[in-house]
């Protein structure tokens, strides 16, 4: 565990909690892509199956359970409790266009051809693109609430910090995982455009809105 990895995990946790609190406090999930949240729940579910097979550390187990619990709570709030506020008309990204190719790729490119390993690989690939329905929704409506942009920023920071963590681990622990690194780079690149808008608009106190 290094400082970048810890900061990345905490940034991820902050993102998840900011989103949950936003929905809970405003009693509304307007502007939030339910599809992205379902994809994230699927990511955590397929990745953390090792909770049942091997123990790594109390930190590892507790964080996995929190991520899983929060992901399902978020999906529940969007599709059940505050369903009336869900903006389904704008959440039109075809999630199967992500899940199917990513599933195929996980079968073809993995560390080991075993069910758990393929599911883990699937989760890594899926996570890298799971935010696309949310970004698509923002580009479609042309705007995002400020709190939603904080959520996205924390989520993007988590990935960027993990990249630094991998560079660290490569130099100091001789450790690298090519699948995670390539997927992590793709995921971070997807946020670059958003980072630019966040820094030039939201941090200047303006609402994030895109030119028509």
């Amino acid at each position: 565990m290094n400082i970048f990895r810890l900061a990345g995990d905490l940034s991820h946790l902050a993102a998840i909690i900011v989103l949950l609190l936003k929905i809970w406090k405003t009693r509304s999930c307007a502007g939030i892509s339910g599809k992205s949240q379902i994809l994230f729940a699927l990511v955590f579910t397929t990745r953390y199956l090792d909770l049942f097979t091997n123990f790594i550390s109390p930190y590892n187990t507790v964080m996995k359970m929190i991520y899983l619990g929060c992901a399902y709570a978020t999906v529940y709030l969007i599709y059940m409790k505050f369903k009336a506020t869900y903006d389904g008309n704008h959440d039109t990204f075809r999630a199967e266009f992500l899940v199917v190719p990513v599933g195929g790729l996980a079968f073809l490119v993995n560390h080991e051809f075993s069910p758990l390993e393929i599911l883990w690989t699937f989760s890594i690939y899926l996570e890298s693109v799971a935010i696309l329905p949310q970004l698509f929704m923002i580009s479609k409506t042309g705007e995002a609430e400020t709190i939603t942009t904080h959520y996205l920023f924390a989520l993007g920071m988590y990935r960027a910090l993990y990249l630094i963590n991998w560079i660290w681990r490569y130099y100091f622990e001789n450790f690298f995982d090519l699948i995670a690194i390539v997927a992590g780079c793709v995921q971070t690149i997807l946020y670059c455009d958003f980072f630019y808008l966040y820094i030039t608009k939201v941090l200047q106190g303006k609402k994030l809105s895109l030119p028509a």
Partner: peptide, 10 residues
């Protein structure tokens, strides 16, 4: 440098 799965990461 050995490549190995990063299962300790979240």
């Amino acid at each position: 440098t050995a490549e190995m799965p990063s299962k300790d990461e979240l």
